[in-house]
Design a protein around this nucleic acid. Structure first.
Lengths: 181, 181
DNA sequence: GTGGACATGTAAGTTGTTACATGATTGC
DNA sequence: GCAATCATGTAACAACTTACATGTCCAC
């Protein structure tokens, strides 16, 4: 049930300073994007669903200088459900679709120069991602934020940093291997 | 277009000794599963589509001691299309949904003991996966197989080994960090 | 006679994305 | 007057999974 997780991702963000569909989307894009993505097409229906289930409440508020918005608030029931979900153990490891590896698998049909070019481009993208994670990490340390919030946020970033670094290393080794052929 | 990639994954396997829907599924589950998954619900319609596009041909054959099957063969047009697809550069890095990281992001709502238990279980699963990759790698080296096939197969396994190892290391460090809190 | 490997296929459902529609307000 | 940011929403589509339906042949 990935939908359940997506639901709780949104419910969780209601406890992290986000209380409109718009701000949830922004937070997702900025901070959870490397392990959970979401579109408006999901957010608004799910927010409605959370209210239906009693996990959240809404009120329409008007602001000065900005359009009206719907403010969502997590309820006690929502908090209980969130804690229960957190306790629930993780079933299985997820696997990503990886277009580079797929192409690599069939690369005997191709000249190794082209393969090397693909890997180099991939490596560049990994390095960009690595630097993005670093920048976010530095921003968190520099900014306000409650300690409890920041601790776990940094831990998830460290996962991204560690695995991305390993992938960058693999790119280098693989290119050497292919050049030696 | 992930579907395009899935299509070429199947077309590619027609060049790697698989020529029935059934054997394609087996190969996928055994060797490509860590970066590309597929179900029968996709395989059979796509095989039909490949024939419609002129990328493959079929013939029904009967076997002794086994049920009849449809043997698919890649065509010259299919080979051209496969090479063109291989040349096409990779657009973007994929991101996996990761339930552990999602839960971790909200783990300030939870006692750190429970969080540590989750990470330990995750680490165990990563280690299982790591050993599976190793076993497959050893089997490839030990078995027949053309050198060209084996080289790229091993490279994709090395990616899995490198990133999984990094993730295992992160688990250890994170647990230490949380115990120190 | 039953379980397992081999073999093909589809219908319904799930999950998610993309593109579109709408509109307030601010600053240039 | 136009772009940007803030804001909400949906309909159509895409990709994929799950569950089911069907059947052969072999070995125990």
């Amino acid at each position: 049930m990935t939908k359940e997780n997506t639901q709780f991702a949104i419910l969780g963000l209601l406890t992290s300073g986000c209380n409109t569909g718009y701000s949830i989307k922004q937070m997702m894009d900025g901070s959870l994007t490397h392990f959970w993505k979401i579109s408006y097409g999901q957010i608004y229906p799910i927010l409605k669903g959370l209210v239906d289930q009693g996990y959240a409440s809404v009120r329409e508020t008007s602001q000065e200088g900005k359009p009206d918005k719907k403010e969502y608030q997590i309820t006690d029931m929502g908090r209980d459900a969130l804690r229960k979900w957190l306790e629930h153990p993780i079933k299985e490891l997820e696997t990503t679709k990886n277009e580079l590896l797929l192409k690599l698998f069939f690369s005997r049909h191709q000249e190794s120069q082209v393969t090397i070019r693909h890997i180099l481009q991939y490596q560049q993208k990994l390095e960009d991602r690595y630097h993005t994670y670093h920048t976010i990490k530095n921003n968190i340390s520099a900014r306000h934020m409650s300690q409890a919030d920041a601790l776990y946020w940094i831990i998830t970033l460290d996962y991204g940093l560690a695995t991305t670094k390993a992938a960058i290393g693999w790119c280098g080794e693989t290119i050497s291997k292919l050049k030696g052929e």
